[in-house]
């Protein structure tokens, strides 16, 4: 069953065509990887999907678990189970990580008709998930992403994913800025989320992430269109030969 369906998505930014008819279908239980040169529109695609202001579709359609997203505001998409791990997580000075996480998780739980966590239950749950990611309690007492190292920011993104239990997660270059050990920890964190009733889309430039998070499908995005799709071997081909050959062939 298709959890995320993108049909011929077109989008302009500043009168410039950025997405030129992207189509993609992601089924429950699958992991898809999107690769592509800098500026090809990968982050734009993730913003479009998550409903960022200014990233409205010009034409095309997107469905989350069968439900059209076009008219749905960003926060409702999130509560409905769409998660974006940001390429550049945003700092929120003074906003405690733990209380931020709790508000987010409770908003989602309330939306799907689950009981909200009380303070104690939440802290327990958060600590449990945090320890799996080797995130220290001390970090959760700090303000969201403020003074977090590059690696810590990415870990915190995946921790949020683990707590929010989304249907569809888009991870935008979650591997960038991670050292070898952190890459493994974060990948393990993501893999632990893989299940038959969710789906994950990872955006990355590097095969090394896909060594850990082995995708079912790999897509190459260039100039706002998917020019090639295939299995994990496609990523190896990119690693070896770069994009030029594929782009020319397309």
């Amino acid at each position: 069953m298709s959890l995320l369906e993108i049909k011929k998505a077109r989008l302009k930014l500043d009168n410039k065509n950025i997405l030129n008819g992207v189509s993609l279908s992601v089924n429950a239980g699958e992991v898809h990887a999107i690769m592509g040169p800098n500026g090809s529109g990968k982050s734009t695609l993730s913003y479009m999907l998550s409903g960022r202001e200014g990233y409205e579709l010009e034409s095309g359609e997107i469905l989350l678990d069968g439900q059209s997203l076009s008219e749905m505001p960003a926060d409702e998409r999130a509560r409905s189970g769409l998660f974006l791990a940001f390429q550049y997580p945003v700092e929120l000075p003074g906003v405690g990580a733990m209380s931020f996480l709790r508000e987010a998780v409770n908003s989602r739980r309330k939306f799907i008709g689950k009981e909200e966590f009380d303070h104690l239950a939440f802290v327990k749950e958060a600590r449990k998930e945090a320890s799996k990611m080797f995130v220290k309690d001390e970090m959760l007492k700090r303000a969201v992403n403020v003074g977090f190292s590059g690696g810590e920011k990415k870990k915190f993104e995946i921790l949020q994913m683990a707590m929010l239990k989304p249907k569809v997660s888009i991870l935008d270059e979650t591997d960038s800025g991670l050292d070898v050990d952190a890459l493994k920890i974060v990948s393990d964190g993501v893999n632990a989320q893989r299940s038959d009733d969710n789906a994950i889309v990872v955006i990355t430039h590097y095969q090394r992430l896909l060594d850990y998070i082995v995708p079912d499908f790999v897509h190459i995005l260039s100039d706002g269109v998917i020019i090639k799709s295939g299995g994990p071997e496609l990523a190896l081909e990119v690693e070896k030969n770069g994009y030029a050959g594929m782009i020319n062939a397309a």
Binding site: P73, A74, L92, P93, V95, E103, A104, F111, Q160
Partner: peptide, 28 residues
Amino acid sequence: SEDQLFYCLQRGLDTEQATSLIVNGFCK
């Protein structure tokens, strides 16, 4: 910033919740 607001929205907080969080963070 729009970035801050969108980050909060993407986590499922509505605009008022997000504003209130950011503002209270500012006043902490």
